[in-house]
Amino acid sequence: MPTDSPMPAEAQEAQGTQPRVDEREQAGGRWAVASGRWTVLAMSSMPAWTTLSDSLKGVPAQQGRPWDLRPIEQLDHIGAQLLWNHWGQAWPARLEMDSQHKAVLDQVALYTCSPPVEPTVTFAERFRHFAHNGTRMMFVARDFLGLIGQLVLDVGKLLRAPLRGPWRDFSGQIYQFGTTALPITALVGLLIGVVLAYLTSQQLRQYGAETFIVNILGLSLIRELGPVLAAVLIAGRSGSAITAQIGVMRVTEELDAMRVMGIPHGFRLVMPRVLALAITMPLISMWTSMAALFGGMIAADLSLDISPAYFLSALPRAVPMSNLYLALSKSAVFGILIALIGCYFGMKVKPNTESLGRGTTSSVVTSITVVILVDALFAVLFKGVGLR
């Protein structure tokens, strides 16, 4: 029968250096005695950590229990933090230890921070916080509705006292938004009409329905593509200009100077731009549709031998006048929305160049998105108007 061999010296030394806590009878009662090496290296192995955890659970931190740390061979900040947390971050009533261990424990006790206690928030406090701060979408809706309401009041003020209106600004904005935009809108409309006519002619030729190109081009360009294309161009051209103009006035503190002098922002800045785009957008939309129809007529003549005379004579029969009225009213709504969005983001610009660039970009993206959404809404609401 094999006999139990004595434990090797290395194993005895490793077991003696493991950190642990025991209860011992000493002078004055039962003491909690910590021994071994309370360092990261000694606690790094899983058996050592398990043994230390079990021994700490066996010696809970009770009020009035004395502790003896003199048998500890080595103590670093991790071991001291473990002891400090086990004591409930408070010194025991009686403590015996060496001076070097006391210096480490003093540092840990000095710089240990307790986690913040989350305050209990009632439903009424949450509701009050939401009412004051809310979500960003609610703030945007509130400010945008306030801008629309101020516009209505300014238009009423203009109707009561027309002679005091900013007519010079109004005429300048019409020239800036309308006249200077005619070349680019005509060029883009012409090219769109040519492309649409060539693509459509390839399909109609297969079925011998070449004459229906007048119906397709007339309805698509006059009713949908003309107003939307003009609105997208104006949103990128004039909407960004409105935001940049008002934003620069914010950066150079001209808006603050106007407020000090008693000049209302809505009456002198917002209203002229909104009315100018409300008038010019239907005209630009009709101009873009005419350019696109001209390009489509030329392409139809070259690809399908549809003469311009037949094209012009068949167009009124293919496209009822209600489509033109719908397109003009839709373009006016587009112009009002583009101007309002441009003015809103211009007013929200902060006095720095980074905010100016971000506001201009947001203005263009928002304007184009709103134009497409409103166009889809018009298409659903007036799906039975102008179609035979």
Rank of each mutant, 00 (worst) to 15 (best):
P8A: 10
T17F: 14
E23D: 11
A32C: 11
G36R: 00
L41Q: 15
M43H: 03
S45D: 13
G64C: 06
L69E: 00
R70K: 10
A80T: 04
L82K: 12
L83M: 05
G88P: 06
Q89R: 15
E96N: 13
S99Y: 09
K102T: 14
K102Y: 15
V104L: 04
P116V: 04
E118L: 14
P119V: 05
P119K: 08
V121G: 11
F123L: 14
A124S: 12
E125Q: 15
E125N: 14
E125P: 12
F127V: 11
T135C: 13
T135I: 11
V140F: 11
V140D: 09
L145D: 08
I148R: 02
G149W: 05
Q150N: 13
V152A: 13
D154V: 12
G156T: 05
R160G: 15
P166S: 05
G172V: 03
I174Q: 01
I184Q: 06
L187M: 10
G189R: 02
G193R: 01
V195D: 00
L199P: 03
Q203C: 08
Q206A: 12
E210P: 10
S220G: 11
I222H: 02
A231I: 08
V232G: 02
R237D: 10
G239I: 05
S240F: 02
I242H: 04
T243V: 09
A244W: 08
G247I: 02
V248F: 14
E253A: 12
A257D: 07
V260M: 14
M261S: 13
M261W: 08
H265K: 13
R268A: 12
L269T: 03
P272S: 07
P272R: 00
P272V: 01
L275H: 02
M290C: 13
M290G: 13
G296C: 06
G296R: 00
I298K: 07
A299M: 15
D301I: 10
S303Q: 14
D305Q: 12
S307D: 10
A309R: 13
Y310F: 15
F311H: 03
S313F: 04
P316D: 11
V319G: 00
P320I: 07
A327S: 15
S331T: 05
L340N: 01
F345T: 00
G346C: 06
K350P: 12
T353P: 10
V365C: 05
S367G: 04
T369Y: 13
T369V: 14
V370M: 12
V374H: 09
L377M: 14
F382A: 07
K383C: 08
L387A: 07
